[in-house]
Write a protein that binds this DNA or RNA. Structure first.
Lengths: 196, 196
DNA sequence: GACTTATATCTAATGTCATTAGATATGTAT
DNA sequence: ATACATATCTAATGACATTAGATATAAGTC
């Protein structure tokens, strides 16, 4: 019997997340690969993590937390439409710089309390900005869905080599951000006009 | 030795596509499942199709062709901004009604001539509409990327149970379409103003 | 009609990944 | 020192993909 290494659940998730960060390729993060990197047998992982499903859930949690941190930082010291642009930009940057981590963060929450809380933390800064700007909650939801859809799709198209035309993808991103920000700006202007 | 069934490549792809249409689940479309439905051994499939990769490429082609047909139909008998809305709506409807087929159509073209041609066919109607409206080609590309990203993301979020808030996803889709159409409309109005 | 040829299908074997069951050794607490 | 919890192991199974090589069937040729 091999020596007991005293690996913890955190170690397992750390290792899995390392693999994901290094390769930005979900396919690489298998139970087998994680075990190999830890120097133990695959089967031993099941003592720490609830199989592939459980591992992916842990990775989703970490990705969401990492993203939430970025977005909160991006919301510091800015206000109004600049704040919207800043948080939006941070979200795009994260999705393009860490495509696999961003993809992992898109995890069906169902009724999982921890996932739901992590999603809450991600949504918090933008929601606060828009809510304080007096924008209607259902409109916020529609706009959030537009934004998340767009970033999600753009990131995946970008990573999969789907944007092949000889037109700068950076310019496309700027174009997209401008469209999304303009849509919010209209609503801000309108509410300012109403209040004045 | 079993009787020769005379299965053709088209039969194999038909069967695979049937599986995809029925389940709208890519995971289900395996070499094994396709062979089982055809009543032959998995290995026999390799005489018709170049493995899983080849099968997915064929499915991507069919999905693209099916989508192209829908978009061309949607562009018949409409003009200007109405045409934009009609084609856009058709694209959304296809993505939401056949999520797995739409996802399969998002296939890295690389230098594959058939895939590139199929993508061309999909892009043709909207590109024609926008080009005839005098919109700049690079702007068309940016806008197309915005649209494709958004639909791609919305479709996948929708299918994966990511849109959980008690707000109508149908309304969100309408909201999103309005934003996308408005962005084009601005440009149409501008060019009309210039020409007048 | 017999012979050749092409090929659709088969059997056999290998490899990867995930997972469950049950054994064993190590660290910790009593 | 003994007992217990558990981290790790070996063994076994199952799904899927893939390659190599054998065989029978259909089609073409003389």
């Amino acid at each position: 019997m091999a020596a007991r290494l005293g690996i913890s659940k955190a170690d397992v998730v750390d290792t899995a997340y390392e693999l994901l960060e290094e390769t930005q390729n979900v396919q690489v993060v298998t139970m087998t690969a994680v075990a190999a990197r830890l120097g133990i047998r695959v089967q031993s992982l099941y003592a720490h993590v609830d199989g592939t499903q459980g591992l992916q859930r842990e990775i989703a949690l970490r990705s969401l937390q990492k993203l939430a941190q970025r977005l909160n930082q991006a919301a510091i010291g800015v206000a109004g439409i600049d704040a919207v642009r800043s948080v939006l930009k941070a979200q795009f940057d994260f999705a393009l710089e860490h495509p696999a981590e961003f993809a992992a963060s898109i995890y069906p929450p169902g009724t999982d309390p921890q996932i739901l809380e992590a999603i809450q933390d991600v949504s918090y800064p933008m929601h606060t900005i828009l809510h304080n700007a007096g924008i209607d909650d259902s409109v916020i939801t529609h706009w959030n869905r537009l934004v998340l859809s767009t970033i999600c799709g753009f990131s995946s198209l970008h990573q999969n080599g789907q944007l092949t035309l000889p037109v700068s993808t950076k310019d496309s991103m700027d174009y997209i951000i401008k469209v999304l920000v303009s849509d919010v700006e209209e609503k801000l202007v309108t509410s300012e006009m109403i209040s004045s």
